[in-house]
Design a protein around this nucleic acid. Structure first.
Lengths: 243, 243
DNA sequence: GTTGATTTGTCCGTATGTATA
DNA sequence: GTATACATACGGACAAATCAA
């Protein structure tokens, strides 16, 4: 790839230090800065700004846990392996990040029984307005929040699925207790957008952060829909893998 | 979904008017504002800011082509359908957006023959440093730039593939002229990040925009890799569909 | 061990942009 | 439109830590 042209835009509504922070984060993820960052003066010259402005960007990234600055030595990139989640017919989150054996848990943030909106009803193949259970869940890997999900289940089939999820922290286990020993991913829609307020807070992201959004339906072996859900992944931590 | 909590953050490095512009864009894409925006005063109250700040946000979105303000009548949402691209074993871009029949074309921006870096060599199963053809391409649907791709081909097998792509605007057609009548998607990695400078320019995006990134290998019927590529989609225009 | 070069950390002051009233 | 408060960006200077000659 060509080296990035040093174009930071003024009066764009985004502070220079934040634009530069984003650029540095990008350069790290693209492997341009692998271990150590260039000195502040060099970065300032490259981006065409004052050294203090670069320091602002570095301070933000340090706060974010991306960088670690050491007086007199330099600024270093904190190593953070990216997680790869599989997406396909046999996708289930309990499998977690592919390959990497990691400590993983699901946390129930909130739950409610409510009437299904038209889109949810269509996905679950029930009457619009029929009662559904909504679960708001958070998934952590190695103590780091990686995804936030909103799931819907038919309330007549899966009453009190919230209790079982709260205990087990696993959709797979929860469904098993309702006699669903196996299930399949019917379809997955993938998009990306800026994180909203609640995701920003729950996933501990900084403003402007990106979430990878998957919207999907899981069906039982008979092809009956059991779960309609939207999962939002912190895009700087995970990638999705289709095979 | 719950109504968005009105929390715009100060001293976050992002001007309030831009945060609000992002929120409005989000509300539009989630269908909350489908046709007409609420009055400026109502928005100001909702986000907890001054009316002038909301006007700044609306001005930016109007400039961006998302909104259209009419004197005395209100502010209206310019309709823009989102494109859905399939991802799977039989994925090829010439199929284009699923379902929607649209005018679609591929444009060759640049090409070069160069030694393969280790990652490319591994993906194409050739010796590191062996010559590869690199194609930089842009895809448009209905005259709107939707994706930017960087592709690599083994230069000994696919010499002058650039010429054929430039003529046909299609990878499928180009490969066919080399005797590859059919091919399969071996694997796809999906991630999301802020658009870099060149993508910003080529896809005509505004700073801070998001790209959906797919990295993949296409193989011929014998399982031999033929193409290693990264495609970057404008995230506000497209979603990916795995089935 | 000393010196000098390099690099991050902190202080000053000033000008401009952003947001409110 | 005007006034006020605060955040952003710049420029310079110096202190503190590190490293190598």
């Amino acid at each position: 790839m060509a080296k990035a042209a040093s174009k930071v835009e003024r009066r764009s509504g985004i502070a220079l230090w934040r634009q530069i922070a984003d650029r540095i984060r990008l350069a790290i993820s693209s492997g341009e800065f692998s271990e150590r960052l260039p000195p502040e003066m060099e970065l300032a010259e490259r981006f065409g700004v004052n050294r203090h402005t670069v320091r602002g960007a570095i301070a933000a990234l340090t706060q974010e846990g991306v960088l670690r600055a050491e007086q007199g030595r330099g600024t270093f990139v904190k190593r953070r392996r990216s997680l790869s989640y599989p997406v396909g017919a046999r996708t289930r989150f309990s499998e977690g990040p592919k390959g990497q054996a990691r400590e993983r848990r699901g946390i129930l943030l909130d739950h409610a029984v409510e009437p299904a909106d038209p889109r949810t009803a269509a996905a679950l193949e029930i009457e619009p307005g029929a009662k559904v259970v909504r679960l708001e869940t958070l998934s952590e890997a190695d103590g780091r929040a990686v995804s936030r999900a909103t799931s819907f289940f038919d309330a007549t089939r899966f009453a009190s699925i919230d209790d079982i999820y709260a205990e087990s922290g696993s959709i797979t286990v929860a469904l098993k207790s309702f006699g669903i020993s196996d299930y399949f991913r019917h379809s997955t829609q993938i998009s990306a957008r800026h994180a909203g307020d609640t995701d920003l807070a729950d996933l501990k992201l900084s403003p402007g952060a990106i979430v990878l959004v998957t919207v999907y339906v899981n069906v039982d072996p008979d092809g009956r829909p059991v779960q309609f859900a939207e999962t939002r992944f912190a895009a700087d931590l995970v990638e999705l893998s289709v095979s």
